[in-house]
Nucleic acid binder design. Structure first.
Length: 564
DNA sequence: GCTCGGTGCGCC
DNA sequence: AAATGGCGCACCGAGC
């Protein structure tokens, strides 16, 4: 059964199902009715945009089992059709479905994530067209467009998984990652000194800045300004192109140690200091806003809170409630396994049978050969070299040892390497590439086409064109892997959120990592569920016959820092 | 006073 | 000389 619900511009909420239509509902009545229908029928809910509407339901204590998100589907289909620049709003989709010119009504897929469906002015549908009527029309049209794709079953799976991800994102934000503000405050005070008002340097930074200036001849140096640091070092006879950490590290000068410490503490202060704590942690929970579909490759973005980069130094603050555990699970070497499954490389699948893929890869690459490092004195072990080889294949690296290592990888695993090299070649020609389930890379910009497409007269332009072409090739090379990994994790989330035993719940998700908060007695069960869910997701995405293992390393811990 | 590109960091 | 993908955020400083 299917039920469509949305918010009309002026009259409140509408629910339209097989038993009729309810209009003009208040938010509370709407939530109650949705709850009743969910319990009675567990329908597939068709939502114009889960991001816009679902948080209100979650807040009212309502959970939906399944949904279909028209906005996310529109974005994925537009990208598939090579029209990613067009708006995915309900109004635009409705216009296109009726063969009309879609209005230019705001940000398109992948751009500024302003609400597009329920902007303050409403969805902007023509008079007499209700949200549910428009939604029904768009749904019909999208079903036709799905049927027209190369592999409709995969696209259907993608749309279902992406929709479920949107539900998961709202639920995760609402639940929040348990965060010990008291521990965070202690940590800040210990490293930075007593709290200072916004805009002021804490004592530790003031002291370090003074030390740095003294070590650089006494003239004031602003360590926050890389230009100031570069100039000051130049006066000391030290020439560096920029004040980057890795450049500073190798310099023997008394200013270097305080400079590096300043950088570290300054980052702690500005990125995760008192202001961050005030803004993003409430009632002992860190609640970032996740944006499903916010990255072209299908990864989630976040808006505010910097959830994509919770620094290791603060992870002990992410701490389970008393009597509860955090079950931290990440996909071990997910991307190389995805590449293996994508390319169907049988030899690499044997390597991927190992839990430590890179260790096994090292054996496969180096046993029986004496691989001589290019740079004398390079002490990296074989496992590290195997990893460089694999990352170079997936990212397009060529520097240092990467070239020869990639050549060796290509020799041993030609199917896997040629898979990404075809993707790179397509990108260099300006063509699109697709993930396993049909996520599609955007077209390069007009500027890129102008640069790479024209007949070039001078050598400088030729070089720039070549560089731009190679750069886009690296993007599409990585896209096929990263976006297919996003396919897999979206299906994982969809599977997982339906299976967790109450009251266990997801509290964090990042690329290939999930955290579940659960009563201690459920921790083992949750870990098993996560491991089962990834296997099932892999079967759904890559097929029953896929020989690749996807180990999920699930650890039950009291705080996040213990997980790695 | 503002915007905006560059820089630098840190996460996957 | 650096030349591997994706992201968000804070800060600086040039330019308006």
């Amino acid at each position: 059964m299917q039920v469509i619900t949305g918010r009309e511009e002026e009259s409140g909420y509408t629910i339209e199902g097989p038993s009729g239509t309810l209009r003009g509902l208040s938010r509370a009545d709407w939530a109650d009715e949705v709850r009743r229908l969910e319990a009675a029928e567990s329908p597939r809910w068709v939502l114009p945009s889960a991001e816009e509407i679902y948080p209100a339901l979650v807040k009212a204590g309502v959970r939906l089992g399944r949904c279909y998100d028209l906005s996310l589907a529109e974005g994925l289909l537009l990208a598939y059709e090579g029209r990613e620049g067009e708006s995915r709003s309900l109004r635009a989709a409705w216009a296109r479905a009726n063969g009309e010119e879609p209005p230019d009504d705001g940000p398109a897929f992948g751009e500024d994530a302003q609400p597009t469906l329920f902007s303050p002015r409403g969805p902007g549908l023509p008079p007499g067209i209700t949200v549910v009527a428009a939604a029904r029309r768009v749904l019909e049209e999208q079903e036709k467009r799905v049927a027209a794709t190369e592999n409709p079953a995969r696209m259907r799976l993608l749309l279902a998984a992406e929709s479920a991800s949107a539900l998961a994102a709202a639920e995760i934000s609402a639940a929040g990652l348990p965060w010990r503000a008291d521990r965070h405050l202690q940590l800040l005070e210990a490293r930075l000194g007593p709290r200072v008002p916004a805009g002021q340097r804490p004592k530790a930074l003031v002291d370090l800045a003074a030390k740095i200036s003294a070590a650089l001849g006494g003239r004031p140096v602003n360590p926050d300004s890389s230009a100031s640091v570069v100039r000051a070092l130049a006066r000391e006879g030290i020439e560096i192109p920029a004040a980057r950490k890795y450049l500073l590290q190798d310099i023997d000068h008394p200013a270097v140690a305080p400079l590096l410490e300043y950088k570290e503490l300054s980052r702690l202060h500005s990125a995760n200091g008192w202001a961050w704590l005030d803004e993003w942690v409430t009632d002992g929970r860190f609640r970032p806003h996740y944006v499903v579909g916010g990255v072209v490759s299908g990864r989630w973005a976040t808006r505010g809170g910097g959830a994509l980069q919770i620094p290791r130094a603060l992870r002990s603050c992410a701490s389970a409630d008393p009597g509860w555990k955090l079950i931290v699970a990440d996909g071990a070497q997910l991307e190389p396994r995805v590449l293996t499954a994508l390319s169907g490389d049988r030899r690499l699948a044997e390597v991927a049978a190992a839990t430590d893929l890179y260790a096994r890869l090292a054996e496969a690459l180096f046993s029986g050969t004496r691989y001589v490092p290019l740079r004398p004195g390079d002490t990296r072990d074989d496992r590290s070299r195997a990893k460089i080889a694999m990352l170079s294949a997936m990212y397009g690296g060529t520097s240092g040892e990467a070239g020869p290592l990639l050549a060796l990888l290509r020799q041993r695993f030609p199917d896997a390497v040629s898979y990404v090299e075809h993707a790179a070649a397509a990108g260099e020609r300006g063509e699109r590439v697709r993930s396993r389930l049909g996520r599609t890379s955007p077209a390069p910009s007009a500027a890129w086409r102008a640069l790479t497409g024209g007949l070039t007269e001078d050598e400088a332009t030729e070089t720039r064109a070549r560089r731009a072409s190679r750069s886009w090739g690296r993007f599409t090379r990585n896209f096929v892997v990263q976006a297919s990994a996003a396919d897999l994790t979206a299906v994982l989330l969809a599977t997982l959120r339906g299976r967790l035993p109450d009251p266990a719940h997801l509290v964090f998700f990042l690329h290939d990592e999930v955290i579940v908060h659960a009563p201690a007695e459920l921790a083992d069960e949750v870990a098993d569920i996560v491991e089962t869910a990834i296997q099932e997701a892999a079967r759904l995405v890559f097929g029953e016959a896929c020989p690749v293992r996807f180990p999920m390393d699930a650890k039950s811990v009291d705080n996040y820092a213990e997980a790695k």
